[in-house]
């Protein structure tokens, strides 16, 4: 199976139905993408596939063959991703941090599609669970990004 992760081609000798999450974590040792539920419920495993937020725990690798997969490890190579990370730092968003890889990926995906999201847009897109209660910091960071002069949409 041929996969392109963060612009780097990989050939993996594993079954095509293997979830992308476990290919990333166990075969490629990219552990920034997290396992939380395995059911696409919590969002900790979120990656971008062709710019769209995808739950990697329920995405077989055969479905992303030939696609461009972006994970948290390379998020700062993306201009918008870099700005999202900066906003996360500025707003001191993470607490335990476990869900934040997924939160950052979901925020990048949202802002790529909706450069100036309303609260309702944020509610609809940011479905990732956080047990530490960083939700208001996430919302503030996204609004801050949306109103920054650099934000032209992507």
């Amino acid at each position: 199976m041929d996969l392109t992760i963060n612009g780097v081609p990989h050939q993996l000798e594993i079954e095509p139905e293997t979830p992308l999450l476990w290919a990333l974590r166990d075969d490629l040792a990219m552990t920034g993408t997290k396992y939380g539920c395995g059911l696409a419920q919590c969002g900790a495993c979120t990656v971008l596939v062709n710019g769209q937020a995808v739950r990697s725990c329920v995405t077989p690798i055969e479905r992303v063959a030939g696609a461009s997969v972006l994970t948290i490890e390379a998020i700062e190579q993306d201009d918008l991703g870099k700005r999202v990370v900066s906003a996360w730092v500025k707003h001191q968003v993470p607490q335990c941090g476990y869900c934040q890889s997924g939160q950052v990926m979901a925020a990048v995906s949202l802002l790529k599609q909706v450069p100036h999201p309303t609260d309702d847009d944020i509610n609809a897109a940011m479905l990732n669970l956080c047990r530490c209660g960083t939700y208001n910091a996430i919302r503030a960071a996204i609004h801050d990004l949306a109103s920054s002069p650099e934000n032209k949409g992507a």
Binding site: R25, D26, A29, T31, G32, T33, K34, Y35, T71, I72, E73, I75, E76, V85, W88, V89, Q92, V93, P94, C96, G97, Y98, Q100, S101, V104
Partner: peptide, 26 residues
């Protein structure tokens, strides 16, 4: 400012579940 924010915003922070040693099985 917290010391762990950047690592936690970029997937670099490591938890037990991310640990790996030579010869390890799952």
């Amino acid at each position: 400012q917290r010391l762990d924010i950047y690592e936690k915003s970029t997937g670099k922070a490591e938890y037990t579940i991310d640990m790996r040693v030579e010869g390890m099985l799952h």
